[in-house]
């Protein structure tokens, strides 16, 4: 039963994933003087969609269209297994490292982009093409930040990185670069807009536009998990706290609370970022991600210098 706590941790966090998105929406709505949807709304949406029996699938869609949601959610969940959350170590232990997370997420994205084109709707194709354009830039920035972190701890394993517990300028810069990447990866303003109904401007949503019912529920849930992967990563990097030594229920609860606080802080930062910016013109996104890349590079230089 040595993996027991880790598995509980993972299940808990998967169950809590939609809460993070609901929280950001709630904060945004409060600032905009709106009552808005309840924080739990993503759950209600999920169960509503899950309960639908009349899923509409285009006649032109192939098996890929039906399989993609499962690949997408599996890849998100698998990536989560590799990320250390609040119990110190990642659920899958030393099976994968920081680079593996990136590529596991890329697998999900690859299938999502294929599925977007599969039904041959113009929107899906546009969404896939935009997603690939953005992610090709975002991945580079993410990768360089990861290497900067690896330089700090001397290993690409998460355990080493997160277990460091020392605040470094390079970690902070890498965390900042990853925050910009996370904006792109979680389709938030200024890169994408989750709240819009304008099909022509969508990136991530455009790929999922052909989906309905259970498949849509799965895809949306996968997005929530993916979002949490990114923000847990960043939380671990920019608020480095030494991992708990020893074990016990009280300690676990305390570290869970600390983890939740870190995420809450990130949710507030994310919400205010979204509120205070207009969405960028599509081709300007390259500038933003180039900036993220430069920040990542800077953090690598800092890390090499030992800061």
């Amino acid at each position: 039963m040595e993996h027991g706590p880790a598995i509980i941790q993972i299940l808990l966090i998967i169950a809590a994933a939609p809460l993070f998105g609901g929280l950001i929406t709630k904060i945004k709505n409060i600032v905009r003087l709106r009552r808005g949807a309840p924080v739990l709304q993503p759950y209600w949406n999920f169960f509503k969609l899950l309960g639908k029996s009349d899923e509409v699938i285009s006649q032109h869609a192939s098996w890929l269209f039906k399989a993609a949601p499962y690949v997408v959610i599996s890849s998100s969940a698998a990536a989560l297994l590799l990320v250390p959350l609040f119990g110190g170590f990642a659920a899958a232990g030393g099976m994968g490292d920081i680079v593996a997370v990136l590529f596991i997420l890329a697998l999900g994205r690859f299938f999502m982009a294929l599925a977007g084109m599969d039904a041959a709707s113009a929107f899906g194709g546009m969404g896939s093409s935009r997603e690939m354009f953005i992610s090709s830039l975002a991945e580079t920035a993410a990768l360089v930040s990861f290497f900067a972190l690896a330089l700090n701890s001397g290993s690409t394993s998460f355990a080493a990185i997160a277990g460091d517990g020392v605040f470094r300028a390079s970690s902070f810069t890498a965390g900042f670069a990853l925050f910009l990447v996370a904006i792109a990866e979680t389709s938030r303003i200024p890169v994408d807009n989750q709240e819009t109904h304008l099909e022509l401007t969508m990136v991530h949503e455009a790929m999922a536009l052909e989906y309905s019912g259970r498949s849509l529920a799965i895809i949306e849930y996968a997005s929530h998990i993916r979002q949490l992967v990114w923000f847990s990563l960043i939380a671990g990097i920019i608020f480095p706290l030494p991992p708990p030594s020893g074990c016990g229920a009280a300690l676990a609860a305390a570290s869970a609370a600390v983890f939740a606080l870190k995420l809450l802080a990130l949710a507030v930062i994310m919400a205010f970022t979204e509120i205070s910016l207009a969405k960028m013109r599509l081709f300007r996104v390259a500038d933003l991600l180039m900036f993220a890349f430069v920040a990542a590079l800077a953090s690598a230089v800092l890390a090499a210098g030992g800061y």
Partner: peptide
């Protein structure tokens, strides 16, 4: 116009 570029705070002010 603010809404359509995802700039939601001014959009909220305009609706007021």
């Amino acid at each position: 116009m603010a809404t359509d570029v995802g700039f939601s705070f001014p959009a909220a002010c305009a609706s007021v």
